[in-house]
């Protein structure tokens, strides 16, 4: 059975340079592990779908029942490395296409590119 997903469209508010994609991904992984442990992390099913530091935007995927725990974990992140930042969830949707609509600065190529890197 295919599990239903939710995509969180995210804006990263900061005046400093944003970290690289692996650093950003690891920061979220670490925070999820600290808060919920490995079991909770596996239930959330976190995946960084797109990340564009220049456009200060990202799209994160999770299981459709786990949006609230993931948002709570994102809200507790204040700093990544030495960068003070505010992770603002602009919208939640069931498809990448709709998630991109929340972030007009991103286009579908950013999603494809960030997948290729893995």
């Amino acid at each position: 059975m295919r599990l239903r997903q939710r995509y969180l469209a995210i804006r990263l508010l900061t005046h400093q340079n944003l970290p690289s994609e692996p650093t950003f991904r690891n920061a979220i992984w670490n925070q999820l592990q600290r808060l919920y442990g490995e079991l909770g992390m596996s239930r959330i099913g976190f995946w960084l779908t797109a990340y564009h530091p220049e456009k200060q935007s990202a799209i994160i995927r999770c299981q459709h029942t786990q949006v609230r725990p993931l948002r709570a974990a994102l809200a507790t992140i204040r700093q990544i490395d030495s960068t003070l930042l505010l992770i603002h969830v602009v919208g939640v949707s069931g498809s990448i296409k709709k998630a991109l609509a929340f972030l007009p600065q991103l286009d579908p190529t950013h999603v494809v590119r960030s997948r290729k890197y893995r």
Binding site: L13, T14, L35, V67, R68, P69, R71, A72, L74, A75, T76, R78, L84, L85, L86, H88, V89
Partner: peptide, 22 residues
């Protein structure tokens, strides 16, 4: 500070850690 602000929806989500029902 500005970086400590959270949006209304994020505050609602953060309250999950305080066991506040949705």
């Amino acid at each position: 500070r500005a970086c400590e602000l959270r949006s209304p929806q994020d505050l609602m989500a953060l309250s999950y850690l305080a066991s506040v029902p949705e």
